[in-house]
Amino acid sequence: MIKYFFRRLFTFVLSLALASIVIFSLVEIAPGDPASFMLGINAQPDTIAALRSELGLDQPKINRYFDWIGGMLTGDFGISYTYRTNVTEMVGDRLWVSLPLAIYALFLSTVIAIPTGIYAAAKRGKTGDFAVISATQLGIAIPNFWFAIILVGIFAIKLQWFSAGGFSGWKDGLFNGITSLTLPAIALALPQAAILSRVMRSALIETLGEDYIRTARAKGLSSSQTIWTHALRNALIPVLTIIGLQFSFLLAGAIIIEQVFYLPGLGRLVFQAITQRDLIVVESVVMLLVFAVILVNFIVDITYMLVDPRLRQDSI
């Protein structure tokens, strides 16, 4: 068990190191010099050179890489080229929107998907199953920004239960913060829930065909008891994998939804930074997202171990 943990931990660290090298190199290769971009097309070469040295861009690549990594590790992400402010603060502010939004959406998606998936599997081949399948088909087919617009139309404009957009921050209390994230979270969660529900359904149906389910039935368990006590935990492994992937997607992939609801999230920050060649912001945010993705996958791997005793044994 301990070996499994450390092996995962080792891959976790190794993936981070590799990712940092890839991100750094990609940003280096990308065309466009931040200094000349900041000064405009009419800038003098010596002004550009002066700015380059001020920003540290004239240092050898290897030094800049380690400066960047060292800064990251101590929580110093550098200074934004365009805003001239601390990137750590910028990212931190945005993270307070994006992270709760992602967790909220993931929570909603799981809460919708798992029960519907189980219900469909229990009723496989019957009307209930058909209804869930049709609904999830719709959920996958409809783009989430369209959902978002419909939600705004109904709940913000017509019913006026929620605001149509913007985020007032967490200063006005937890409830206000959650309320302003509700519509975006629903819009994000629905398509994810549709996918997750299908994964839950098919994983459960596959598990229900296993021999040990028949054994459990032979012991006198009813078919719904076998689902709860035997099938569900076995079917959870593929579902966990998808939940891990979805969290990573929700954290960074919310850009369109952020746009629709005018939320100051990480997606918009990256988008703006890319258009403005603010490489230090791009690097930092992307690295942060990669960190989150790898961390979530690490946690999923550890959860596998808790679910499956075969992985707890060190010989595997």
Binding site: A218, K219, R233
Partner: peptide, 29 residues
Amino acid sequence: SENKFCKLRGKKISMVFQEPMTALNPLKN
């Protein structure tokens, strides 16, 4: 009824299957 049958299975009539490798739930001791 299925309910009544559940009370018989395992108690009055029980069954052993062919494949011992897959007949047990791998996640429970």
